[in-house]
Design a protein around this nucleic acid. Structure first.
Lengths: 195, 195, 195, 195
DNA sequence: CATGAATGAGGATTCATTCAT
DNA sequence: TATGAATGAATCCTCATTCAT
């Protein structure tokens, strides 16, 4: 309760402010001073928690990516069938992107932009392993097309980012039905077409 | 043949420099002075062709988007069947993204980022109409799933952006086989599953 | 006359302001903004002429050191006897330090402080060669004590810096008589004592 | 034996750290935080021992200057002849500058720079009295030239600072022989030339 | 007495933009 | 038209100093 340590609350507030401001204004147009103001700290305080602006964004990215993968796999266990497993993970991811819209937007922006250090990006990608394992199993069992993981991700997972961004822009609203449609599209794009 | 007062070459050089620099460094980290240097003009000269930095990026976006849609529909005619029509357009888009990698990357970055004015974004989207028309027809004919155009785009077209970016990062290389696989995934994700 | 080039006047004003402010306030306590103000330019303008603060000080040092050595050797020719040669040079140096008091002070501060890059310091020292040559001749002829040039400089030349600083502090005033006394001390400290 | 409330050890550590850091990096480039770190205390602790940064440097200066003069006159008694007296003091000073190189460097930097308050500088100079007294006696006896004490100091004592700095820079190494040569130069520069 | 956290004020530097030529 | 020089307004970041514990 006492304030003897660097407060994790302040760190969290900074990360949150970074996400919100970068989402709304872009990395350019997000000065440290604004981040500080939104987090209710002095600009100088940021540097107690982060080395510099780059570090702040890198760490924010890693943290959000980690939250994302944690959420994605929280209810998954690898004993279930490939199809069920995929559906479980996919729906969790969709859920995350809907409920944690700000986080999802932030990841989308970072992943399509050279604002994150190569190293941090790799760090963020590590935790996707369970999905890749599932796909490996699916390929072996002849259920999932024997394609590169990049193509699988591009079609099965990434489209959600596009939809989230479109929704944030107000062009479109994602509802339950859309999610179900999207899931079918995702699954159809990667499953082996039975004959 | 007559020499225009403002040299189109200089304008083009500026647009090209903008694309290259924004691709490699991000919008932040792309100062006007660097753009000028890369285009071999004085910083002041930029302002003869563009109102300000925002205008430069907006116009660059519109121009590239226009080049993209022109290329996409160049060989398409709406008399062909929906499936053929989709394949023609899809393959042209894939072709563009592969051959005009820099342009494609630039669009991907702009589309996932708040660096383009809302107005310019809409302007850029207009020319996608033939594809939307094709999808309308496809839905009417029961060939394409009756889903929002946003979902169709998310699954049929957008995944290519992810793949191009991954390729640019050197994580992955797109070859002919991948393109064919991707096409199948795209089509499977939007076509009505016959039984 | 036209203002097409980077104006040498502005550069000179910046160098002059740097000298004056560093003399009066020290390198710490001399912000770029003050230098700019004193030179009647915008802070940003400094960076058209110098890479950064360090470069500004380095170049200022080299320039002043160069003025110093140029002045020192302007009336010297190496055909005269060692004693006469030394007197000519010494008196010119004394003259410089008296007349160009600000410059002399600046050198003294730089030479006793780690504010100048090693490289620039070496660059500044190069032009002292004629004096070192004279001493070499003097040693060969048995007129000057066979000591390290550092010791010779410490006793023959460097004391003037101390006197200039004391004068600037108002503790002491250097007049013609003092200069003559100082010269005698300088010469006595390095000449071979006849018996 | 009684434990003082404020630990003299901490104070000493702070003074020592100040000297070392100012010597190596200059007064600019010596933040309080670095001083604290090198002294193994918290930045806040500095303010228990010193009013502010200026006070820390002032006190450090006075302390070092005092150590210097104490050492200089420790073996001197004013009953000996002027020449012997001078030699005794000079050699002690040389000894100090060689053995307490860091301290000597610090003084040199302070004495050529506006980083010390006028008042503290005067305070530091006070204790030089025995040397000035010796010189007064020497002048009266016709052994030392009837020159200003500033000139005497400039030629007899100050050159050692130049040599120490040169040595610290690695340009030159002071050994026993050099010291003896320097002493002769010092003495020759201030003694009345007998004929 | 001692401290780690916190900060306001300020410093170096950059940059979009303008101006004189 | 074209430009190099110039700049005010930010921006990132540092630092001497204070405060709550």
């Amino acid at each position: 309760m006492a304030k003897l340590q660097k407060s994790i609350d302040k760190r969290n507030a900074l990360v949150k402010a970074t996400i919100e401001l970068v989402n709304n204004n872009g990395f350019h147009a997000t000065p440290m001073s604004k981040i500080a103001k939104m987090a209710n700290v002095s600009p100088a305080t940021i540097y107690l928690y982060f080395e510099n602006k780059q570090d702040l964004v890198n760490q924010t990215y890693i943290e959000v990516k980690s939250k994302y993968t944690d959420y994605a796999f929280a209810t998954y266990n690898d004993k279930v069938s490939v199809e069920i497993g995929f559906e479980v993970i996919w729906k969790r991811i969709a859920d995350f992107k809907l409920k944690e819209c700000e986080n999802a937007m932030f990841l989308a922006q970072c992943d399509n932009t050279p604002i994150i250090d190569e190293l941090s990006r790799q760090e963020g990608t590590k935790h996707l392993q369970p999905l890749l394992d599932l796909w490996r199993r699916g390929k072996k069992e002849g259920i999932i097309k024997p394609m590169s993981d990049y193509i699988l991700y591009a079609y099965a997972i990434n489209p959600l980012s596009f939809l989230i961004i479109s929704q944030k822009r107000g062009e479109f609203t994602l509802d339950k039905t859309h999610i179900e449609e999207a899931y079918q599209s995702a699954w159809n794009s990667i499953k082996v077409c039975s004959r």
